[in-house]
Nucleic acid binder design. Structure first.
Length: 773
RNA sequence: GCGGACGUGGUGGAACGGUAGACACACAGGACUUAAAAUCCUGAGAUGGCAACGUCGUGUGGGUUCAAGUCCCACCGUCCGCACCA
């Protein structure tokens, strides 16, 4: 494990031990491999060759964000661009369904749904083919196809731009060394985020001309531009500078035509000009021949239908096309740790599935981690197997699956964890979707989208039988915040653990010092706990010292669960004191309260009554707060009830009357009940000390007596002209008139009226009275 | 650049459009104690006043309403997501 950890660290990966161990189970992998093969049979899993960033030192594929700077240095060597054949899942086959079904997820946070919608990135547009003027055409290039969402702006076309990797750019580069050099420059860029932000829009005129689809005498230049992506659309665009800021900047830089074609409603054609800002809104078409005067939507339709009718080389010039940003999911990983992909490569038979009877394909136990690269590929024997089809010597697939695959379907497997098949359809149909899913916001896109894809893929491979319109894994989603803590940094720039620091003072005067040396320490930002910043607390230490209940109580009490939570030493101590307090209450009640099973008194005096009201009210409020996942509010209600209990115990002074003694026992039992979900140990301990030998966790939630939840008299605020002047305590069922009369008699109201006659008195029963003058 | 969320005391945070600051932490005073800790009681948004009481207060400026922390518009700030997406 230590060696693996080291290797993972050297690969720049952190290890989530819980997840890795939970899914490393060989039984689970047998089923996961079966699912993979079934997806392969349906074409949902496939191999594809693509260009990747390759770390030449660690011999591994890099994600884009791991490439450190614009030129792609990594581990001290230049990142290589490599063609690599890898495995993919066809998530894009479900693009539309994954997007549309987001609307049905009304118990998901809006934020997550939005993030997924943006990630899927649906856009409606057209593919438009432009004929290349043959006298200027590079070898073998007859036409250029662009993707656009704005065919309505075609008469504002100024130039075409293609990506450096576009066939036209490559063909033209063959006879133009300067262009070839420019294309090389473009390829080297665009790997890092910072580079993109600052990168200048640059282009190079290829000298190639194309004809406008609506007017073949209109010739337009084709540029290679560094901002056009080969991966999106067709790798080629047409630019309308008046309607797109980036195109406008480019046109101004290279002195290309700027023709306004859309004008905001209400502007005058004669005076409307495009300056430094493009107009990308909806409006009225101008300078656009047959589109003139139409609005944007109508112009889109008119242009689109004409493009569909025009032909070039006997095919339509334009075709409507829905484009997605979402890509298929690359699942190949060149590392040891993960589910082996159950495939054998044979020189004669090609890609051969491992027969189901031979699953699982297990990882070798004797892998070595002393060298960079994939230990499976390097292993002396593991990959050398016979072809399952023809029996000849063949090679095992050495890629393992992305661990996101593991977490994409466990919730379905867990509905029948011992099933012989990957999923027991009946069990899954009964339990799914998961009622309440709780996780971090960091999974908003990847894990949660992959799981949604998997549910559908499992249906289509016959592993799940869910209704077509509810193929969702998680019915309700809650995203909880992260645990954060202050950071501490010594004068020489070293991070310090909280336990190595002593804090004194408060507010802005708070200072910190190194306990060992006494040297002053800088108090830094409150950020997510991380090993590198050392702002960690060890859960084992805390539990050993304070107990698990104390930690739970503090974590729940501090902030609403969806927000980040600030761990403070003082907060834990406070929770610890509250536990002691509860414990004392239980002792006092066990001592002075009524015995278990004592008959309920017929009547209750004022003290007993007010305690009972507090108990029933608290029980009710705690229940609804917990059900709404508002745990910090639930904690506050328990605190408030504890204060009422304190008052009652003080009044009882160890010798309560019969009615109060009974109310105290009731209160004690309610207390155990209401803390049980949050502090189970303390609750069970209290329950036993109250004379039970059962578990409070097994008891039904007590029924509340509705009459105890309402008071006979209530207090309403009294306002004059919306400003609070007094409050009024009055019978709950008092009539409007009674309330109004009582309110107008109040001294404070009379004073505020200053002799004026009220114009209107608004009475909202049980809430407020507002006197308007 | 695009999209979204948020902004309340010293602090974490409460508040179906209806008494802003529940509850807690920290703080101050008191009781208990030889003393301290622990515990219990009390206080506290700011400001003026001995007090009664008054004025101002939920980032800023407008608006809707009998009534706005809450709804609408604009701006400022913080955070998050996406980002040459054609």
């Amino acid at each position: 494990i230590a060696t693996m950890k080291r290797q993972l660290r050297s690969m720049g990966l952190s290890l989530d031990w819980k997840r890795e161990f939970a899914t490393c189970d060989v039984g689970y992998y047998r089923h996961q491999q079966q699912v993979f093969l079934d997806m392969l049979a349906k074409g949902l899993a496939y191999r594809k060759s693509s260009k990747v960033n390759w770390d030449p030192v660690d011999h591994t594929v890099l994600a884009n964000e791991q490439v450190i700077d614009g030129r792609g240095w990594r581990s001290g060597a230049l990142v290589e661009q490599r063609e690599l054949t890898q495995w993919f899942f066809a998530i894009t086959r479900y693009s539309d369904e994954l997007l549309d079904a987001l609307q049905t997820l009304d118990k998901w946070p809006e934020k997550v749904r939005l993030m997924q919608a943006n990630w899927i990135g649906r856009s409606e547009g057209m593919l438009v083919r432009w004929a290349v003027e043959q006298s200027t055409a590079p070898k073998g290039i007859l036409e250029v196809e662009v993707y656009t969402t704005r065919p309505d702006t075609l008469f504002g076309a100024s130039f075409l731009a293609v990506a450096a990797d576009h066939p036209l750019a490559k063909a033209a580069s063959a006879t133009n060394p300067e262009l070839a050099a420019f294309c090389d420059d473009c390829r080297r860029m665009g790997t890092s985020v910072t580079e993109l932000e600052t990168a200048e829009k640059k282009g190079f005129d290829t000298g190639v001309l194309v004809s406008h689809p609506f007017d073949e005498t209109w010739k337009i230049s084709v540029y290679v531009a560094n901002f056009v992506l080969m991966e999106y659309g067709t790798g080629a665009i047409f630019a309308c500078p008046s309607g797109d800021q980036r195109d406008l900047d480019f046109a101004r830089k290279y002195d290309l035509p700027v023709v306004p074609v859309v004008m905001p409603a209400g502007e005058d054609v004669a005076t409307f000009k495009i300056g430094k800002t493009a107009f990308d809104g909806d409006g009225v078409m101008i300078n656009s021949r047959f589109l003139d005067g139409m609005d944007t939507t109508a112009a889109f339709e008119a242009a689109a239908s004409r493009l569909e009718k025009l032909t070039l080389a006997k095919k339509p010039v334009g075709t409507r096309k829905v484009q997605f940003r979402l890509r298929d999911w690359g699942i190949s990983r060149q590392r040891y740790w993960g589910c082996p992909i159950p495939i054998v490569h044979c020189a004669d038979c090609g890609v051969v599935a491992v027969p189901s009877t031979d699953l699982p394909v297990k990882l070798p136990d004797d892998a070595t981690f002393d060298l960079p690269g994939n230990p499976l590929d390097r292993h002396p024997t593991w990959k050398h197997v016979d072809c399952p089809a023809c029996g000849k010597a063949a090679r095992r697939e050495t890629d393992t699956m992305d661990t996101f695959v593991d977490s994409s379907w466990y919730y379905a497997r867990f509905t029948a964890p011992d099933a012989e098949t990957p999923i027991d359809k009946d069990a899954a149909a009964y339990w799914l979707p998961v009622d309440q899913y709780i996780g971090g916001i960091e999974h908003a896109i990847l894990h949660l989208l992959y799981s949604r894809f998997f549910t559908r893929a499992l249906c289509d491979t016959g592993h799940l039988a869910l209704k077509q319109n509810s193929r969702e894994p998680f019915g309700a989603l809650f995203t909880q915040g992260m645990v954060t803590h202050e950071t501490y940094k010594s004068a020489d720039g070293q991070w310090l653990m909280p336990e190595e620091v002593r804090i004194s003072g408060e507010g802005t005067a708070r200072t910190a010092a190194d306990i060992k040396t006494g040297a002053p320490v800088e108090i830094g930002d409150i950020i997510k706990m991380s090993k590198s910043k050392k702002n960690l607390v060890d859960p084992d230490d805390i539990i050993a010292h304070h107990g698990a209940d104390c930690v739970r109580w503090f974590v729940l009490s501090d902030s609403p669960p969806e927000r980040d939570f600030i761990w403070t030493e003082g907060g834990v101590a406070g929770a610890g004191r509250f536990i002691q307090r509860i414990s004392r209450f239980v002792d006092q009640i066990a001592d002075a309260g009524a015995a278990r099973g004592t008959a309920k008194p017929e009547t209750f005096g004022a003290d007993a009554m007010s305690l009972r009201k507090a108990a029933h009210r608290a029980l009710n409020l705690v229940a609804s707060a917990i059900e709404g996942l508002r745990f910090n509010v639930a904690v506050a209600q328990v605190h408030e009830f504890a204060n009422s209990l304190q008052t009652a115990l003080t009044k009882a002074d160890g010798k309560p009357a019969r009615d109060l003694a009974w109310a105290l026992r009731e209160a004690g039992e309610f207390l155990a009940q209401m803390i049980s979900p949050m502090m189970p140990h303390l609750a069970e301990d209290g329950w036993q000390r109250l004379g039970y030998n059962t578990l409070v966790a097994n008891q039904p939630w007590p029924g509340v007596e509705a009459v105890l939840l309402v008071d006979d008299t209530i207090t309403v605020a009294v306002q004059v002209n919306g400003k609070r002047r007094d409050e009024l305590t009055i019978a709950r069922n008092a009539s409007h008139l009674e309330i109004e009369t009582a309110a107008l008699k109040l001294d404070s109201v009379v004073r505020a009226l200053e002799g004026r006659t009220p114009k209107k008195v608004i009475v909202v029963p049980q809430r407020i009275v507002n006197v308007v003058v």
